[in-house]
Design a protein around this nucleic acid. Sequence first.
DNA 1: TTGAAAGCGCTAACAA
DNA 2: TTGTTAGCGCTTTCAA
Lengths: 340, 340
Amino acid sequence: MSSREPTLADVAQLAGVSPTTVSRVLNNRGYLSEKTKRSVADAIKTLGYRPNSLARALHGKSTQTVGLIVPAVSLPFFGELAVEVENALAEAGYRILICNSMGRAEREREYLSLLVGNRVDGIISGAHNEGLSEYDTIRMPLVTIDRELSPSIPNVRCANRDAGALATRALLDAGCRHPLLLTSRSGPRNLREAGYCAEIERAGLEPRIVTIPFDTPTPQRFALVQSSLDQACARSPIDAVFATDDLAAAEVLEWAHTRDLSVPGDLSIIGFDGTETMRRALPHLATIRQPISQIAQAAVDILLEQMEGTLPRPIDEAGESPAPTLEFPGTLIPGRSISA
Amino acid sequence: MSSREPTLADVAQLAGVSPTTVSRVLNNRGYLSEKTKRSVADAIKTLGYRPNSLARALHGKSTQTVGLIVPAVSLPFFGELAVEVENALAEAGYRILICNSMGRAEREREYLSLLVGNRVDGIISGAHNEGLSEYDTIRMPLVTIDRELSPSIPNVRCANRDAGALATRALLDAGCRHPLLLTSRSGPRNLREAGYCAEIERAGLEPRIVTIPFDTPTPQRFALVQSSLDQACARSPIDAVFATDDLAAAEVLEWAHTRDLSVPGDLSIIGFDGTETMRRALPHLATIRQPISQIAQAAVDILLEQMEGTLPRPIDEAGESPAPTLEFPGTLIPGRSISA
DNA sequence: TTGAAAGCGCTAACAA
DNA sequence: TTGTTAGCGCTTTCAA
C-alpha cells in the first residue's frame, strides 16, 4: 500500500484515461460517456482518492474558506458565534478557519497574515484588539462583528446601546435606585455603558461604574471583582448590578453570596449575552440575550455578497454603500436575580 | 492598484532578481548578499506581498495544519480543549482547522473528507459519533481524545473510571446513601459510569442511573431532566446526584430549586469537567476537573511525533507501539454543593 | 467524447 | 552569490 495520497494522475492511469478526463468527471463538466464516468468512479473508489483542494485553489480559484477571528472559542459567546457562523457558511458551501487571538494583538496579526497566506476568500473578525493597522492592507472581503474597524468596513452587532438601556431599565423598574455597571472596558466606545448612563440620567440618578479589564487572568479575576465591588459599596451603597457579560454577572452573584447579600432581596443582578451555555448554567439569572444566530447570519450574508460579487472590495468611492453598521435588538430575559 | 494578490514573480520583477532568489530570501536559505536581501525585502513591503501557503504546500511539503474535530466549540469542555490544542500546536509552528461535527455523523464524515482534501498533516478527533468507517481509510497521523476508535489509534483522555469513582466517593464520604448517576450515554463504554458502579457496589448500595441523551435539543432538555429525576425519586428517594458533566449538574441544581430541595441539605451534587467557564459560572459546584491542557498537550505531542517522524502511520505490525491509551487523572474540586 | 499542453505560485535540483 | 529548469496536483484552453 503506497503511503502517499493518490493523485488525479494515479486515478487516470488506473482508469486508463487522461488526467483531463478525470478532472472532468470530478467537476462534472463537459460531455462524458457513461462508461468513462463509471470506470473513473471505480478507480477513485478503489484508490480512496480525494482531490487535493490546495492544488485546485492554486488556479486563482476560490478556496471556499473564510477566516473567523475571535478572542477565544472557550468564551461562551464566541464559541456559540463560531458555531453559528460555521452553520451559516456551510449552507453556502464554505468552511471556516477559526482563529483564537487570545486577546493578544500579536497573535491576531499573525493570524491575519496566515489567513491571507492561505488565500481564504474572506474574513469575519470579532476580536477585541484595537487599532491593528494590518487590517488596512487586507485586500479581501471583510466583515466585523461588534468591532468598529473603519467606517468602510461593515460591522454587525447587537444594538448595544438600546440593550444596555433595556437592562438598566429592568433594574430601575424593579425599584432599584443605585444600580452599578460592571464592565470590561469603560469609555465612549462602550455602547452598553452609554445605554446604561442614558437611562440612569433619565431617572435622575448617579452612574456608578466599575471596570475589570477584559484580559484579567482567571485566577486574579474573582479577587479583583470582590475588592472592586467592596470598594464601590464602601463609597456608597448599591442595590443592583448590571454586568455586561453573564460570566461577570456570575461573579457578582458569588460575591453577593460571600457578603451575605441576598439576591434579589438585597441586590438585583442582570447580565448580558444570554448564551445557551449560561442559560443552562444559571437559568435564574436575568440577562439580555444577544441574537447570536441572526448576527452570524447577517455577517455571513454580507460577506457572501462581497465574495460572490466580482468586486474585490466594496466600492464606496461614490459613497455607494457606506458600509453599514447592522444592529439587531437584544431581548430581555427576566429571571429570579431581579426583584419582582 | 491591482486587485489580485501579488505573487513571488511580482516581487522578483520589482526587485530585479529571479524568483528563486526571492524564494531564498523568504526561506532564508543559501547565500544571499545583503544588498539583494534588502532590495527583495523592500519589494515585498511595497507590494504588501504575502507568500501563498497553498502553493508552498503543493510541493508535497507539509501544510503545517492539523484538523481538530469536536462536537461543538460552544460546549465549554470542547471550547477550552480547542484553545489548549491550538496553543500547544502553535508552539510547534502548526495551526488548526476546527471542525464542529454537531453530533452528526454525516457532518463528521464531510469534515474528514475536507481535512484530507486540504492535506492537513494530522487529525485530532474528539467527536462523539460511533463507528465511522471512514476513519479506516485515513492515511495520516491521527489521535483521538476520549474516543475509542480502534486499538491501533492512540487515545488520550481523563482517567474516567477513577474519576467517576472519585466523584462517587466524595458523595459517599459526605454521608450520602442514595447517589444517582446522571449521564448522557449509559453502557459498558461509559467509564465514568463504571467508576460510579464500582464504588457504589463496594459500599453495598444500589446503583441508580438516569440517562439524558447527549444530543437532546436544549429546549426539551431541561424538561426531560426534570421529569426523569422526578420519576427516579418517585421510585425511591435519592440524596445525591453525580452528573457526568457540569452543565447537567447545573440542571440538577435548578431542578432541586424548583422542587424545594435544599443543596446540599437535601441533595448533594457533584459535576464533571471543571472547565474555567463553569468554574466562573458556578464556583460552588463540586466537580471533577479534567486536566484539559495536559490532555491537549499529550495529544499534540503524540501527533507531532507521528508527523515529524518519517512514518506515515504508526507501525504496529510487530506489536511495536500498541497505540497506547494515555490517561490523566481528574482532580476533585470540593464545593458547597456537597454537604460537609 | 477525449487528450495534449500550458500554467497556477512556489521550491528544489543543478548549473553558472 | 544568483539564475535556469523542472515539477508539485490540478484546471483549462485548444485540438483532435
